[in-house]
Every structure is written in C-alpha cells, then in structure tokens.
Design a protein around this nucleic acid. Structure first.
Lengths: 202, 202
DNA sequence: ATTTACGGAACGAACGTTCATTCCGTAATT
DNA sequence: AATTACGGAATGAACGTTCGTTCCGTAAAT
C-alpha cells in the first residue's frame, strides 16, 4: 500500500486548511488518516517536510487545474484575451469549489516561514506562466504594471472565496461569472486595442 | 502604569502578525513587551482573551483610519463616488503602510476559530458602513451584487499588499493610486449614471 | 524626620499538559 | 526465516498557566 502516503497527504491538507500549521498536531493528522503516528513518520521525515509536501501537492494541482490545455492568449485580439481570462476565472472557480481545502490552505495561510526552496520553486512555476501571458497582453499599456494587475486579480478572487466561506455572501455560477467580468474591466481598458501588430515599444 | 497594557498589546500584535496565534508563545510576547510572564496574566485572562483584544484593537484602528470624517458618497454623481472611493483607497494604503502589523494580522490570519462574539461585532462595525454606502451607490445596477463587489475590492487590496510584502512587487504612491483607479473600473461601469438609465455591457 | 507596616504590581521558577518525535513489540510480507 | 511495515506507548522539549516570592511607593506610627 503506497497510497498510504496519499491518504496522509489528504488528511494533512484538511487539517492544515482548517487549523493551520501550528494549530495542527501530528498525531491528529495520523488519526484522521487512520494510521499510527509512527507510520506517518515512515513516510515523512518530520512535520515541516509534511507541510511542504502538502503545499507542493496542492499547488501543483492548482497549476494543473489552471494551466493544462490553456493556450496562450492572442496578443492582438481583445475579445480573445477576454475569453482567455474568462476561462482562467472559470477554472479558478472550479478549483476552489472542487478542492476547497487545497484552495484555502494555499491562500489563507502565511507559509513563508516554513516553506523550503523546492516549494518556492513550485510556487513560481504557477505564477510565471500567468505573469508571462499578462506581460504579453499588457506590456505596452498605461496603468498599473503586470505585477500589480496580477496581484489585484488574484487577491480579488481569493477575497471572493474567503467572503463566501465566512458567510458574507453566497455564490452561484452566474454571480461568479459576473464577478469575473467585473474583474476583466480591471484589466481591459488599458489594453492596446485590436488593430493588428504594433511597432515595438519605444 | 496603565500603558503596560498598551505595550503588551503592541508586542502581541507584532508577534501574532509575524508568526500567527498558534505559532506565538505567551512568554515570547511577555519578553518582547519587557514584562514578566506573570505580569501579562495580570492584564489578560489568558492567551485567547489576549488575541481577541489585539484583534479588536487593530480592527478599531482600521475602522478609524478608514471611516472617521469620511462623508457618505453622493448617490447621483459618478465623479463624486469615484472621489469617495479614491479617498477610501488612499486611507487603506496609509493604514497598510503605517500599521503594517495590524493590517497583516487582520487579513493574513484565519481568525474565526478563536474570535469571540464581541470581536465579531467589531468586525461587522467596520464592514457595515461600507456595505451601506455601496448599497446606496449600486443598488439598482446590473452586475455583481454589493457583497461581491466589496469582497473583490477588499481582496484586491489585500492581495496587493500581500504581494508587496512577499517581494513580488514594489509599490510607490503612484502605483498604489493607479491600482485604485483600476479597481474603480471594477465598480463604475455598472453604476447608474448621472442621467438616464444604467449603462449596460453587451 | 525616620522608621515601620502595608498592599498591589511584578517576576520567573515550577506545574501539569500537549506537542513532535522515537522506540520497540507485533503483524505482514517476502 | 528474514525483512519490512505498522501502531501506539514512551520520551523529552515546549507550551500555557499558576503561584510563592520580591519589589516598591505610600501611609501610619514613632
């Protein structure tokens, strides 16, 4: 049984998402996974290694959910870019809905303190493609830089899901889509409009 | 000396903001405050009471920074509403800059588990005025509901500050203002205009 | 004016508990 | 028969909290 590792990872994700890293006891995780405490330590060197693997596992699933099979947006067509964004937004919504623990864990905690370099690499592997795509879309526009736009959009989505989890609002698919459309306005007005290739940045 | 209470609250805020509730040991807080551990327990019944007071204290400072002296936005003038929003955004920025620990603590943690009812009331006392103002501005518009808009805007700002703290971007005043302007676009297109029916996106 | 008595504020060692981790007897696998 | 996997009691460190004591400003007594 090597899926014991998987079971422990899942149980740990749920516990960490609910109570945070420091708020979760290792024997708790073991019990939730239905294994002995000692067994857990056969699969993970220590608590920190466990949380790092949980983090990478969740982050990689997020990356897959977001990016697998998504083409690069067309640089010169605003409506294509909008559809690209809508697709990402929809995928985010699906991920948050189908893997609420993973989403909550990834976004609600302050991981920096215990993440190792390997985990940070995985973090960047999600961000980099988005950043590049955004760069291609917005590089020559006025207004906030790509970094700022990404931070705003990402934060907006996180805020939306968090508000739902805390009971401040309820979200159906339509409202989620409307929210995405509203967020697109945050990007769009600065984009170079559709009229074919442009000369290079001066 | 009753400012000893104040000193402990400040030290606790810093520690909680940095390492979280469960990641912070009470004697640590006492030492940072320059008092004996036992002394801390003269001012706060236990760790949970301490974190609740820290939370309320920080939240009330946020409320003051945001709302004191801010008039209600003019319901029928789009540019007035925009200036009202810009003012709030600027105040948020000032708060995040001058009280980074308070902002971080309030937004980065998942408090629900240990907050008592009194703290939740304070939480609402910040949200309610914003919600009401937003309601007055947007009630008759299409697009996302007020709750959704507030969640998006709040999340966007939090995301921006978090990205800065994590080193993904650097923010000067100008970029912060641009970000605010971009976020305003998230609200504005749905607002009922000064004259005639609402604008609609097709 | 000096000394003594008092009381609350402050301290930090000590307590019981809980945590992360290890150890070892047993069960499963080869 | 030998090896590997497993569970959960055992261990020591760290935690939240308590408690006996000290400290110190003020008031009473001399």
């Amino acid at each position: 049984m090597d899926d014991k590792r998987r079971i422990i990872l899942d149980a740990a994700l749920e516990a960490f998402a609910e109570r945070g890293y420091h708020g979760t006891a290792v024997p708790e995780v073991a019990e939730a996974a239905g294994v002995g405490t000692g067994t857990l330590y056969r699969y993970f060197e220590n608590k920190e290694a466990l949380v790092n693997e949980v983090y990478r596992d969740a982050k990689q699933r997020l990356r897959a959910a977001l990016l697998v099979g998504v083409p690069d947006p067309d640089l010169y067509r605003l409506d294509a870019a909008e559809m690209w964004f809508a697709e990402l937004w929809r995928r985010l919504g699906t991920f948050a809905k189908t893997e609420p623990d993973a989403f909550r864990f990834l976004e609600m905690q302050d991981h920096v303190a215990y993440l190792d370099n390997k985990s940070r690499e995985v973090e960047l592997s999600v961000l980099a493609p988005l950043w590049l795509a955004g760069k291609r879309l917005r590089d020559r526009s006025d207004g906030p830089s790509v970094d700022v736009i990404i931070a705003l959009l990402w934060g907006a989505f996180v805020g939306l899901i968090k508000a739902q989890r805390l009971g401040y609002l309820r979200l159906d698919d339509k409202q989620l889509e409307q929210a995405g459309a509203a967020c697109w306005r945050l990007v769009a007005p600065d984009l170079p409009r559709t009229r074919g290739p442009r000369s290079k940045k001066s």
